[in-house]
Nucleic acid binder design. Structure first.
Lengths: 114, 114
DNA sequence: ACTATATGTGACCATTTGGTCACATGTCAA
DNA sequence: TTGACATGTGACCAAATGGTCACATATAGT
């Protein structure tokens, strides 16, 4: 079960959003690696990672003495569905544009189609 | 333009998300009307509405002595575009990871690591 | 003009939060 | 086994936050 409040609270801090960005660039980074990118001691980074993990936005795995951190987009996806999509009807046209844009990215050129 | 940090911070509080829900149900409500729905004095509600307004999530208009509040979904849409959609491409694999994680792996407390 | 209504301001307080540190545990490699 | 390395815990502190209140301003309606 995903706690919507934990997810929103986790996303409410720019350092944590930056950590998600870092993991998005390269998944499976250790605390030591992430620590380098922030102007903060590893203890601060650790706290932020804990918040992200408890919100389900980051999943971890141990490899020996290293803790690997992986981005989990599922909670964000659920927010997208449960919260943001609530406002669809207010902006039908823009959403249509977005959809078109996304679909065109998946466009398969004629020569490669079966 | 739109301060992403203000938007995320504004969304990070459940009372404020509830206020957005109320405005989504019925747009243009006054402070007095919204106040009824929360278990909080009007001062608290006022502060939350101010945060929402400064984040651009709520737009206001005066009608005599009444202040009408309107939901503005645009900042949410921008988050949708620049933040959430970032993770679209990873969605499938992350979902797979989660599934695998839930099915086969068990969390091993640090103290008990081999 | 008078009074009830609707919202605003600044001070204030308790709690939460972001961040650091001393110290501790667990792991790798020589 | 020894020592360097990677992460964890609990206490601690300053700052931000959620919420209330006394007091103030502006508008509506009679």
């Amino acid at each position: 079960m995903i706690d919507e409040d934990l997810v929103f609270k986790a996303l409410g801090d720019s350092s944590r959003r930056f950590l998600l960005d870092l993991l998005h660039k390269r998944d499976g980074q250790t605390l030591g690696e992430l620590e380098w990118e922030l102007e903060m001691t590893r203890f601060g980074v650790m706290k932020h990672l804990k918040v992200l993990e408890e919100a389900g936005l980051v999943i971890t795995r141990w490899r020996g003495r290293e803790k690997l951190h992986f981005l989990n987009a599922v909670p964000i996806r659920l927010i997208h569905d449960r919260w943001i999509d609530k406002y669809r009807e207010h902006e039908v046209s823009e959403l249509a544009n977005l959809k078109k844009s996304l679909e065109s990215k998946k466009w398969i050129p004629a020569r490669k189609r079966a």
